[in-house]
């Protein structure tokens, strides 16, 4: 009961933060709103007992993406351009797509329904087998780190390659510049 109340309050704060991020025009404040949004979402993931997802959300949402957005604001300026065009057609497209998506969910089983096919296929195997097979107390962690270990390793390789590529694009030019100055001096 107490946990449900905390969940509802956190969801209300999330909605308020999202609406504020859309309505504010100072991009600096919007970046901070996104940071607050990620923090609240990570707290909700902790409440849902998905600790790994919460760690990822906190590290990416609160840490890295805030830094990236602030770096972009430093380049492009911190005030939003006022939009003069009327955007009725995009609004209609968005509403039609949203209505179609909601119509598509009507066939699906209810959220959290234990008899849904997705909870009957392999989930009982993981839930019953993961403590004895992997020794990890958290089911989500055991799936990410043990059952899907090679998948996670591949993802890490992709991310590492992307990071090395970005460093090769950005870092080399920056290294050369002080070196040139030293030679001219």
């Amino acid at each position: 009961m107490l946990i449900e109340t905390v969940n509802i309050v956190l969801l209300a704060l999330l909605a308020v933060t999202a609406i504020a991020a859309v309505r504010l025009h100072d991009l600096f404040a919007v970046a901070m709103m996104f940071s607050i949004y990620s923090l609240l979402a990570a707290a909700m993931f902790v409440l849902l007992d998905a600790v790994d997802v919460a760690f990822t959300e906190a590290a990416v949402g609160v840490g890295i993406s805030t830094v990236l957005m602030l770096g972009t604001i430093g380049l492009v300026g911190r005030h939003e351009q006022p939009s003069t065009r009327r955007s009725l057609l995009p609004l209609a497209v968005v509403i039609a797509t949203g209505a179609a998506l909601i119509y598509g969910t009507l066939d699906m089983p209810f959220f959290g329904d234990p008899t849904a096919p997705v909870h009957q296929h392999v989930a009982p195997f993981y839930i019953t087998g993961s403590p004895s097979q992997t020794g990890v107390p958290n089911v989500v962690t055991s799936i990410l780190a043990s059952y899907r270990g090679y998948d996670t390793l591949g993802e890490l390789a992709v991310i590492f390659t992307a990071g090395v590529g970005v460093l090769a694009l950005l870092g080399l030019r920056r290294r050369k510049r002080p070196g040139k100055e030293e030679t001219t001096k």
Partner: peptide, 10 residues
């Protein structure tokens, strides 16, 4: 980290 970045930009 986020707070330090915000303060540096401001």
């Amino acid at each position: 980290i986020g707070t330090v970045a915000v303060l540096k930009v401001s």
